[in-house]
Design a protein around this nucleic acid. Structure first.
Lengths: 211, 211
DNA sequence: GACGTTCGTGACGCCCCGTCAAGATCACAG
DNA sequence: CTGTGATCTTGACGGGGCGTCACGAACGTC
């Protein structure tokens, strides 16, 4: 009976089992639905049931994946940070000196948010405030990456030691704020915004570009 | 019967009628209660009924004064801005040049928030994000005041024209962010924080104070 | 193919929200 | 002082979203 040509496929199927697959699919479906719903109704008006309805899943299923609307929102921010991180890292490696790093990083960020907004900040109700996501792991990682890049570059340029926490916080705040304002203008000018932010950070007010 | 010495007090009592007085008293009571409740439970966990319960008023009464929890929160921000505005204006008039204005304004802001936090950010749950109040009239007024001060000073110093919207947005973002970080440190050092923020704005990274 | 485990389901109870009709309080005129 | 209309307060009520849980179906494993 031994048939050497017959190998009952041993259970090392590359793809994970169906359980695992539907699990990640559901998680992703909820994330996508949340993106849409937040975009259409705004964060405040959106409910957990609005999100889960769009997936066709039952309401209880939502809670198998996320604890609340807040958590799924944080997961969206986390997702964004995860996709942005490699771009930031690339800039960090490509940069030859501090100014080029700052410029590259900020420009990368502005281009990133400009692209993102097209895809999901579609239909925001006016005046709606988007809550600051509480620092999720990936977001924290991005912050740390910026901080480390600052530390590295400031180290090797023999710059005087500065308050790194304040510095990173301030630079990120500037980038965020200018980024938001940039998105409100038509046409969206990432180059111009980056120019402004970079010169402010590197040279302060006297270095700002003339209009 | 005419008695010239007798004037039945005509109804021009200086104080407004009782109706008006209880109205402002209630409005203030709700505001105070909200401050306490937000401080103790955090913004998210707080409910309209938590707030109104502390005043002894009925639940329905809350809605005679504010439409929602969000609105009373905005009213608190508005209140803060209203009290800060004269301080900012004083700095604006006291300042002799641009650097002294920036420094005075930022220091005033840091001292203001440091005082405020003692009085109502008592017991905040960890990791809680305070929502950015949507720009209420007074808050907008503060922003405009900063913007106008910038415009005025940049005009008379014959500085090259810059993007005023970006500039004010960026400076306010820096002040806010550094202010938040400052409050997390012990002891709270408003002078040091102001030093950092001012030098970053005026001279950029190269001008930052050494540690 | 049978068994144990994991996950999807949707009805349920809970709590909070915003409203509203009824009563209380106030302003004002006679 | 008193009557009358206007204004405010009250708390009970219906509506709706939230998070849970017992049940059943689908899956992995042997």
């Amino acid at each position: 009976m031994s048939n050497i040509a017959y190998f009952p496929k041993p259970h090392v199927d590359q793809r994970p089992g169906k359980r695992e697959r539907t699990k990640t699919a559901n998680r992703q479906a909820i994330l996508d639905a949340a993106r849409e719903v937040f975009g259409e109704l705004g964060y405040d008006a959106a409910t957990v049931r609005d999100i889960i309805r769009r997936t066709g899943l039952a309401s209880g299923t939502f809670y198998n994946y996320y604890k609340s609307k807040e958590e799924v929102f944080d997961a969206l921010a986390d997702d964004g940070a995860r996709r942005f991180r490699p771009l930031l890292r690339a800039e960090s490696e490509k940069a030859v000196d501090f100014p080029s790093f700052v410029r590259g990083a900020i420009l990368a960020y502005f281009n990133f948010v400009a692209t993102e907004q097209e895809s999901w900040r579609i239909n925001r109700p006016p005046g709606e405030q988007i809550p600051h996501a509480r620092p999720s792991p990936e977001v924290t990682a991005v912050f740390d990456e910026v901080r480390e890049a600052f530390a590295r570059v400031l180290e090797q340029t023999h710059a005087p030691p500065v308050d790194l926490d304040y510095l990173t916080a301030a630079c990120i705040a500037v980038a965020r704020e200018i980024g938001d304002k940039m998105l409100e203008r038509r046409p969206v000018d990432t180059e111009g915004a980056a120019d402004f932010a970079v010169k402010l950070i590197l040279g302060g007010l006297p270095a700002l570009p003339r209009l």
